[in-house]
Amino acid sequence: MKKYILNVPNLLFVILAALVSFAPSRLDARNPMSPAFAFVIAIIAVEVFFLYKLKSGRDATATKDIAAFAYAALLLWELLTSKLDILKYIFVPAPENVFYVFVKFGLTILSGFERSMLLLTAGFSAALFFGVLLGILIGWTPRLRNAVFPVVKVFSTVPALIYTPYLVVLMPTFATASILVIFLGIFWSTLMNTINDVGTIDKRIIDSAKILNVKTKVMLFQVILPYLLPRIINSLSVQLNISVMTLNAAELIGADRGMGYFVKRSIDYANYDQAIAGIIFIAIVLTALNSLILVAKGKLIKWHY
């Protein structure tokens, strides 16, 4: 019990919580401060998460270090803005105000989240599905592979961000444009990786399947696909980050709703507290999705190469 309570992160937590709750804000005189409760809830959420990780996670030292670092950063932010008023408020808003954005604009943020996730899911799963399916087919057929691979390699080197503005004007709606952008952003690399992986698959696995007299369909989807699955899942995090990046870039150009759009519009109107809240939100969503991938991997894959 002692080791959960007596540690540096918890000390910082108490200082931070007390400071936010009880110390007077110097900023208040000039700029109206938002209520502090949203920030306090966020701090408590961090603490709950920290204690959970400390209890269930493996590396307690790392968990403590990370938490200590997070609290130190929040403390510094709180001191420099709200408490000491050293940084220019207009550019660096106080954490109280930033976290209050989630209360005030919660619905807007949620509807943007819903929209972004819809586009993301559509583009991401289509690219993954077709990239892996075609990759396995092409990778397994030597003649196709030799013909297609060099071309795929060229396409996969062009970053989707470059032609995103063009697709946004080209496509009839923003939704179709951003789905296409996400699709193209990861389709070529998924296809290339899959073709590559099929080519370098352990010959003994292929021979084992051959001597069992498998038909081509079984070879492709019951031998090669499950064999590659761990690699495919491992690549998901990178692919997901690329998709979010391309989606956000597209949202900067033509959206009317969405996570990236919320940030862009806030910056356009110099609402930096909203912009920072939007950025924090995107970071949380991405982290959650990445953890989801890890959990899925743990559930799906019980073996390694």
Binding site: R204, I205, D207, A209
Partner: peptide, 10 residues
């Protein structure tokens, strides 16, 4: 039956 690795690991 091969020497090694003829089973599917998954």
């Amino acid at each position: 039956v091969f020497q090694h690795y003829s089973l599917f690991p998954w």
